[in-house]
Write a protein that binds this DNA or RNA. Structure first.
Length: 138
DNA sequence: GCCAACGTTGGC
DNA sequence: GCCAACGTTGGC
C-alpha cells in the first residue's frame, strides 16, 4: 500500500465536491507534468492519498482512495501521454493539517510536498502518513 | 547538448 | 501582486 498527496485548488475542485461525488468517486484529471504522471502510474487500486487544498486554505482536509488505476486522461488530446486516476472520498480529517503545521513538524522535514512544492502529486511515506493522520486527529 | 528566455505553479 | 522553483522551448 502506497500513499500520495493530491493537490487541488478548491476553486476548481474542492473536498466538498469530492464528498458529494460519493462512492463512485471522480476522475482526477488535468495533470500535465511528467513526474506527477510517473507517480500516477504507480498508484494502485486501494492506495490512499491526502486531499490537499492548494492556494486557498493550504491544508490537508481529507483522505481519498484510488478506485481506478491510471488510464488515458479524457481531458487531454488524443494520443498524448497524459493519464488520470479515479479517486473517492474516504473520510475528512477531524482537524485539517495546514502547510504551516507540516513545515513546523520535524518528522516531516523531508516530505516531498515541501521539497518539490510545484509537484501536484507528491508521494507520502508510511511514517509521514502516520504522523499527518495523528496531527489530523485520526 | 547547452543555456537563456519564458510560462506556470503555488506560497507569501 | 510578487517572487522562487522549475519545466519547456528554441537559438546556437
Amino acid at each position: 500500500m502506497a500513499y500520495w498527496l493530491l493537490k487541488s485548488e478548491p476553486d476548481a475542485w474542492s473536498w466538498d465536491q469530492m464528498v458529494k461525488a460519493g462512492s463512485k468517486g471522480t476522475a482526477w484529471t488535468g495533470i500535465r507534468n511528467h513526474t506527477a504522471k510517473l507517480n500516477m502510474k504507480k498508484m494502485k487500486k486501494g492506495d490512499r492519498g491526502f486531499f490537499y487544498h492548494s492556494n486557498i486554505g493550504k491544508e490537508i482536509v481529507g483522505i481519498v482512495e484510488v478506485i481506478k488505476e491510471a488510464y488515458a486522461d479524457p481531458t487531454a488530446e488524443a494520443g498524448s501521454p497524459w493519464v488520470c486516476v479515479d479517486v473517492k472520498a474516504v473520510e475528512p480529517l477531524k482537524k485539517p493539517v495546514s502547510l504551516a503545521a507540516i513545515k513546523a513538524e520535524p518528522k516531516l522535514a523531508d516530505i516531498q510536498l515541501l521539497k518539490q512544492s510545484r509537484l501536484s502529486l507528491p508521494a507520502i511515506t508510511d511514517g509521514e502518513w502516520k504522523a499527518i493522520c495523528k496531527m489530523g486527529g485520526l
